[in-house]
Amino acid sequence: SLSVDNKKFWATVESSEHSFEVPIYAETLDEALELAEWQYVPAGFEVTRVRPCVAP
């Protein structure tokens, strides 16, 4: 099958004044980091952490 098993990760994104967490959907932690950097670094943010979303 061609289905992709995307998992939810939380990326911590920082600017000079703010820090916030955004959801990233990817297959692996490395891919989540790449996606977060691709989305947020060009906008002037720094991705400081990516972690798996742990269900309660």
Rank of each mutant, 00 (worst) to 15 (best):
S1W: 09
S1F: 10
S1K: 09
S1I: 10
S1C: 15
S1Q: 11
L2Y: 10
L2G: 12
S3M: 11
S3N: 10
S3T: 10
S3E: 07
S3H: 12
S3R: 11
S3Y: 09
S3V: 11
S3Q: 12
V4A: 11
V4Y: 11
D5K: 15
D5T: 14
D5L: 14
D5Q: 15
D5I: 14
N6K: 15
N6L: 15
N6H: 12
N6P: 13
N6S: 13
N6C: 15
N6D: 06
N6V: 15
K7A: 09
K7G: 05
K7W: 12
K7R: 11
K7H: 09
K7T: 07
K7S: 06
K8R: 10
K8D: 01
K8W: 15
K8M: 15
K8I: 14
K8H: 09
K8S: 05
K8G: 04
F9H: 01
F9S: 00
F9N: 00
F9T: 00
F9A: 00
F9Y: 08
F9C: 15
F9L: 02
W10T: 03
W10D: 00
W10N: 01
W10S: 03
W10L: 07
W10G: 01
W10E: 00
A11Y: 02
A11I: 12
A11N: 01
A11W: 03
A11C: 08
A11D: 00
A11L: 06
A11V: 14
A11M: 05
T12A: 04
T12Y: 07
T12G: 02
T12W: 08
V13K: 00
V13F: 05
V13Y: 05
V13H: 01
V13W: 03
V13P: 01
V13N: 01
V13Q: 00
V13T: 01
E14Y: 12
E14K: 14
E14Q: 14
E14P: 01
E14G: 06
E14A: 12
S15L: 06
S15A: 06
S15M: 07
S15T: 08
S15C: 10
S15E: 03
S16I: 08
S16E: 10
S16A: 11
S16Y: 08
S16N: 10
S16L: 08
S16V: 07
S16F: 10
E17P: 05
E17D: 12
E17K: 10
E17A: 08
E17G: 13
E17C: 09
E17N: 11
E17Y: 13
H18C: 15
H18W: 13
H18T: 11
H18N: 07
H18A: 11
H18E: 10
H18D: 07
S19R: 12
S19T: 10
S19C: 08
S19Y: 07
S19A: 07
S19N: 05
S19V: 11
F20L: 04
F20C: 06
F20E: 02
F20A: 03
F20R: 03
F20I: 04
E21H: 07
E21G: 06
E21P: 01
E21D: 09
V22F: 05
V22Q: 02
V22S: 01
V22C: 07
V22R: 02
P23G: 06
P23M: 14
P23E: 13
P23R: 06
P23V: 15
P23L: 15
P23F: 12
P23D: 04
P23I: 15
P23C: 15
P23S: 07
I24M: 03
I24C: 05
I24Y: 03
I24A: 01
I24D: 00
I24Q: 00
I24F: 04
I24E: 00
I24P: 01
Y25D: 04
Y25M: 05
Y25S: 03
Y25P: 02
Y25I: 06
Y25C: 06
A26H: 03
A26K: 01
A26W: 02
A26M: 03
A26Q: 01
A26T: 02
E27Y: 13
E27N: 13
E27W: 10
E27P: 13
E27K: 15
E27I: 08
T28Y: 03
T28C: 05
T28V: 02
T28G: 05
T28D: 06
L29I: 10
L29M: 09
L29Q: 06
L29N: 03
D30I: 10
D30G: 09
D30M: 12
D30V: 09
D30A: 13
D30T: 10
E31Q: 13
E31W: 04
E31P: 00
E31Y: 05
E31M: 12
E31S: 06
A32E: 01
A32T: 00
A32K: 01
A32N: 00
A32D: 00
A32Y: 02
L33F: 13
L33M: 10
L33A: 05
L33N: 04
L33S: 05
L33I: 13
L33E: 05
E34I: 14
E34N: 09
E34F: 14
E34W: 14
L35Y: 08
L35K: 13
L35C: 06
L35I: 12
L35N: 04
A36T: 03
A36Y: 03
A36G: 02
A36D: 00
A36Q: 02
A36R: 02
E37H: 09
E37L: 14
E37F: 12
E37A: 09
E37P: 01
E37W: 13
W38Q: 15
W38F: 12
W38M: 14
W38N: 13
W38E: 13
W38K: 15
Q39K: 12
Q39H: 09
Q39V: 13
Q39I: 15
Q39E: 08
Q39Y: 15
Y40D: 03
Y40T: 05
Y40F: 09
Y40V: 05
V41E: 06
V41I: 08
V41Y: 05
V41R: 09
V41P: 05
V41A: 11
P42N: 07
P42C: 08
P42W: 12
P42Q: 07
P42A: 12
P42H: 10
P42T: 08
P42E: 07
P42M: 07
P42K: 08
A43L: 15
A43N: 08
A43C: 15
A43T: 04
A43S: 08
G44E: 02
G44C: 04
G44S: 01
G44T: 00
G44M: 02
G44R: 00
G44K: 00
G44H: 01
G44Q: 02
F45Q: 00
F45Y: 13
F45C: 04
F45L: 04
F45W: 06
F45R: 03
F45S: 04
F45K: 01
E46M: 13
E46D: 06
E46F: 11
E46W: 14
E46A: 10
E46S: 09
E46P: 02
V47I: 08
V47Y: 01
V47H: 05
V47E: 01
T48D: 02
T48V: 13
T48G: 02
T48F: 02
T48K: 08
T48I: 13
T48R: 05
T48A: 04
R49P: 02
R49N: 14
R49D: 08
R49H: 13
V50W: 03
V50R: 01
V50E: 00
V50S: 01
V50P: 00
V50A: 02
R51H: 05
R51D: 04
R51G: 05
R51A: 05
R51K: 05
P52K: 06
P52C: 05
P52H: 07
P52M: 12
P52F: 12
P52W: 12
P52T: 07
P52S: 08
P52N: 05
P52A: 10
C53I: 04
C53T: 05
C53L: 04
V54T: 12
V54I: 13
V54A: 11
V54W: 11
V54M: 12
V54D: 09
V54P: 10
V54R: 10
A55N: 10
A55L: 12
A55W: 10
A55V: 11
A55M: 12
A55D: 09
P56G: 12
P56R: 07
P56T: 10
P56M: 11
P56H: 11
